[in-house]
């Protein structure tokens, strides 16, 4: 699975522009662990190796236990291991990511609105939408995960 092209070198201006959106979200007030869990789940759905590697690493650095991380994909089946806010964010992340199939139905919106206020939900939606763009860039060009580089294959 060789990298097709390095868009970060070819188009640094575009990467920087998306980076400003990322920077905005980081200072939006949303909890960083919550955001990284969302980024991880979106990247799982889309199948982004580079992003899974990055956000798993970030979550470990932030103190999330590997026992919890390994169950992000099946968060609905593990009781209260994930908090109410985490569960609501993950559900919203799933429906917004799979937009072509779901159309983001009212029932999902109502559930998310029950937990998050309007601004939080707008920020969360921006974060999910941004990660969908990042995933598409990395998947399209088969960006090499850091773990692969570190293993020096």
């Amino acid at each position: 699975m060789n990298e097709r092209l390095d868009y970060t070198k070819i188009s640094p201006g575009g990467v920087k522009a998306f980076g400003s959106v990322y920077g905005y979200i980081m200072q939006s007030g949303l909890d960083e662990v919550l955001l990284d869990l969302v980024y991880l789940r979106v990247s799982q759905i889309n199948g982004c190796a580079y992003c899974l590697d990055m956000h798993t690493g970030d979550l470990i650095k932030k103190g999330v236990k590997v026992e919890k991380l390994s169950l992000v994909q099946v968060w609905q089946e593990v009781g209260n291991l994930f908090s109410d806010r985490e569960r609501a964010a993950l559900a919203w992340a799933e429906t917004v990511t799979r937009v072509a199939q779901t159309g983001v139905p009212d029932v999902e919106f109502e559930a998310a609105s029950h937990i998050f206020d309007e601004k939080e939900l707008a920020d969360l939606t921006m974060a999910i939408s941004l990660m969908n763009a990042y995933n598409r860039l990395a998947i399209s060009f088969r960006r090499t995960p850091e773990a692969v580089l570190a293993a020096k294959y």
């Binding site: 868009y7 188009s11 575009g14 998306f18 959106v21 917004v96 990511t97 937009v99 159309g103 983001v104 919106f109 707008a122 939606t125 921006m126 999910i128 939408s129 941004l130 969908n132 763009a133 990042y134 598409r136 860039l137 399209s140 060009f141």
Partner: peptide, 17 residues
């Protein structure tokens, strides 16, 4: 591809909201 990423972002923002 940046354009495709961009419009995917807007689509999600506008549909979700």
């Amino acid at each position: 591809t940046l354009c495709i990423g961009e419009i995917n972002t807007w689509n999600r923002l506008m549909i979700a909201s």
